[in-house]
């Protein structure tokens, strides 16, 4: 089956990122296809490379990043939600005249159309949020 996964809450504050990560791993392990993972609302915060959780805690952003690399996942951060919350890739930071960027490998910034297209192309859309 083909899935699009939507993550609407930030890491640590809420369980939805952990649950979405577990779901995505399980779906891949069962041989399903993840068409896209789309990060919206505070979910965009899953894509920062500047998080430094305590040593005895999990590193959610790095886990997503590693999963994307391992399975060549298409992981999209919504640009409108990202701009509000200060998530920037290099080209967007340059376009906005900002002095830094903070996106971790494996994520890229794009528009909400990617969510709609993902849901059209997938058999199921699974939303993780509050």
């Amino acid at each position: 089956m083909i899935f699009t996964v939507m993550v609407n809450e930030g890491p640590y504050q809420h369980q939805s990122s952990d649950s979405a990560l577990a779901f995505t791993r399980a779906a891949l392990a069962e041989g399903h296809t993840i068409f896209r993972v789309f990060f919206y609302n505070d979910g965009v915060n899953n894509g920062t490379r500047l998080a430094v959780p305590p040593k005895d805690d999990r590193e959610l952003q790095k886990e997503w990043s590693a999963l994307a690399k391992e399975h060549d996942l298409d992981m999209v951060i919504c640009i409108a939600a990202a701009q509000r919350r200060g998530l920037m890739d290099a080209s967007e930071a340059e376009r906005q005249g900002l002095d830094a960027n903070n996106i971790i490998d494996g994520f890229h910034i794009s528009g909400l159309g990617q969510l709609i297209e993902g849901s059209i192309q997938s058999d199921r859309t699974v939303v993780f949020g509050d």
């Binding site: 919206y40 609302n41 939600a81 528009g111 059209i120 509050d130």
Partner: peptide, 19 residues
């Protein structure tokens, strides 16, 4: 919370997809 506003933003983008 921002949920209502950002939900509406998705709806407005989705309108272009003729679903």
């Amino acid at each position: 919370t921002v949920y209502a506003l950002e939900a509406l933003e998705v709806v407005l983008i989705a309108a272009a997809f003729e679903q």
